Amino acid sequence: LYEAALSRSKADWIVGINGTRLFTTLYHKKLVVGRVQTPTLAMLVERDGKISTFQKEKYFNVHVGKGDLTADLEKVKTKEEAKRIAAACEKKQAVVSSLKQETKTVNPPKLYDLTTLQREANRYYGFTAQQTLDLVQTLYEKKLLTYPRTDSQFITDDMEDTARQVISIVCRQLPLFSGVSVTPDIARVTDNSKVTDHHAILPTVQLEKQDVSALPQSEQKILNLVGMRLLCATGEKHTYAETQITLSCEGYEFKTKGKTVVQNGWKAIEELFKASLKTKEKDDPMKSLPEVHEGDVLDSVSASVTEHFTTPPKQYTEDTLLSAMETAGNDQFDDDTEKKGLGT
């Protein structure tokens, strides 16, 4: 840690101060160079370049289906070819040539460190990283949240009882989660080796005495977000069965995917939270599929063509930029190197 801090301070002098002087005298205008700022700016410029030089291309998808089952052949280059495939399959037989089913598990997310909280507050509420930091700092000063400037997503073993207490307070005090009953798995979020100076951001036991409705809306939003993450992180796994179906028709293969939830687990809390938002998050594109078996034959299927365009890369949001900063340069190191990107 000492060596890392020393190299950062040297870089600030060697790169930051000298670079700033150089560019300012060269261009007769104050131009600031920084160890974190300049590479971040480079990422923005590179993304802008990709967007401005992007040439959109047209492509076509062919769909065949019968009843509730529709499968697709994607990314056909020309309209003529797509129409030819659709015409060849129209009113013909399609066979379920393959059906793969596997059960998948989505583990609960980790607790919030500052960056993750900033990213999600930006995604759900449109807060900037600075606004989130200010709100978390205010709630910390009101003794309702633990210390905000942390890069840990875990708590220490000795905090288990406190965490249990806080979880029951969250379910009583935050109207959004009132009546939620949980059996928390605290062991999942405890790891002494991953807590350096400060543990993950949690509500405090002082929340018990607070009239939450008396707080400003923006502070209530942050409390809901941190409370939601605590309940999710200590919740049960989310399990679903994913089915991939391939239909063969006239020598072409059409594919579709779907899923059925086996155990909702921690996602139930997340869905409760998302339902309270004014903006609706895009739902999972995976649909539920009708019951079919390998070798089933669908008679007289319908076929259609849809037209699509390739899309340029998206502009960075605070959420995606923070994520890119955290992983910047990772591809230049081995997997087992401890890395922190550009910091945040």
Rank of each mutant, 00 (worst) to 15 (best):
Y2H: 04
A4F: 14
S9K: 06
S9C: 01
I14P: 02
V15G: 06
V15M: 08
N18P: 07
G19K: 07
R21F: 15
H28L: 10
K29R: 15
V32T: 15
V33Q: 13
V36S: 10
T40R: 11
L41H: 08
E46V: 05
F54I: 05
E57G: 11
Y59C: 02
G65T: 08
G67R: 09
D68L: 10
T78D: 10
E81T: 12
K83F: 07
K83N: 11
A86Y: 11
A88Q: 14
K91Q: 10
K92Q: 14
A94S: 03
K100I: 15
Q101F: 00
L111R: 04
Y112T: 02
D113E: 03
T116H: 12
L117F: 03
N122W: 02
N122T: 05
R123K: 12
Q130Y: 12
Q137A: 01
Y140C: 06
Y140R: 08
K143D: 12
Y147E: 02
P148C: 06
Q153F: 00
F154G: 03
I155S: 01
D158G: 15
Q165H: 13
C171I: 12
L174R: 01
L176H: 02
V182G: 10
T183R: 03
A187K: 14
A187D: 14
R188Y: 06
V189A: 00
V189C: 04
T190N: 02
N192G: 12
S193Q: 04
V195D: 01
T196W: 06
A200P: 00
P203I: 04
K209T: 13
E219H: 14
I222T: 02
M228C: 12
C232R: 15
T239F: 00
T243A: 01
Q244A: 14
S248I: 03
K257P: 04
G258Q: 09
K259R: 13
A268Y: 02
E271M: 09
L272P: 04
L272I: 05
K278Q: 13
P285L: 08
V292Y: 01
V297I: 13
L298W: 07
D299R: 13
D299M: 14
V305K: 07
T310V: 10
T311L: 14
T311V: 13
P312Q: 07
E318V: 04
S323L: 15
A324F: 09
K339W: 09
K340E: 09
